[in-house]
């Protein structure tokens, strides 16, 4: 069945595939991002209620706002980790060049 939770898990599996196959460090980091996007979709799917409205007014059926709120935190974690990983890749490359220059 094609709903948000299932598609989310599918996207997570795509991320895992990338981690198993891709040989480029940046691509590996992007695979982690894809995994996290799948996770976000999965969580948003959990909170979905058939025909639910905004959870702002006291309406009769509203979607569950908690998973979406949790995902904001997860996105922050994801951004922080991605930037840290990219910084490490840049530093790795620079120090490799530095070592090559010293050897020359």
């Amino acid at each position: 069945m094609l709903n948000a939770t299932n598609v989310g898990i599918l996207i997570m599996l795509i991320g895992m595939y990338g981690l198993m196959v891709k040989k480029n460090l940046i691509k590996q980091l992007i695979s982690v991002n894809i995994l996290s996007v799948g996770l976000v979709l999965f969580f948003v799917g959990i909170g979905y209620v058939e025909g639910g409205g905004y959870p702002i007014y006291p309406v009769e059926t509203a979607v569950d706002p908690l998973p979406a709120a949790l995902m904001i935190t997860t996105l922050v974690v994801d951004v922080a980790i991605t930037s840290l990983g990219l910084a490490m890749i840049i530093k790795m490359k620079r120090e490799k060049q530095l070592e090559a220059m010293v050897e020359c």
């Binding site: 898990i9 997570m12 981690l19 460090l25 590996q28 980091l29 982690v32 995994l35 996290s36 996770l39 999965f42 969580f43 959990i46 908690l66 998973p67 997860t74 974690v77 980790i81 840290l84 990983g85 490490m88 890749i89 530093k91 790795m92 120090e95 490799k96 070592e99």
Partner: peptide, 30 residues
């Protein structure tokens, strides 16, 4: 130096994947 970056990068990648799978399990429990 470079070796520390490599070790840290591997630690980061695997640790974050583990965390996301932990989060998936939190989602299922919720």
């Amino acid at each position: 130096g470079e070796r520390a970056q490599k070790a840290a990068f591997r630690y980061l990648i695997f640790s974050i994947i583990a965390s996301y799978l932990f989060l998936l399990s939190i989602g299922i429990i919720y």
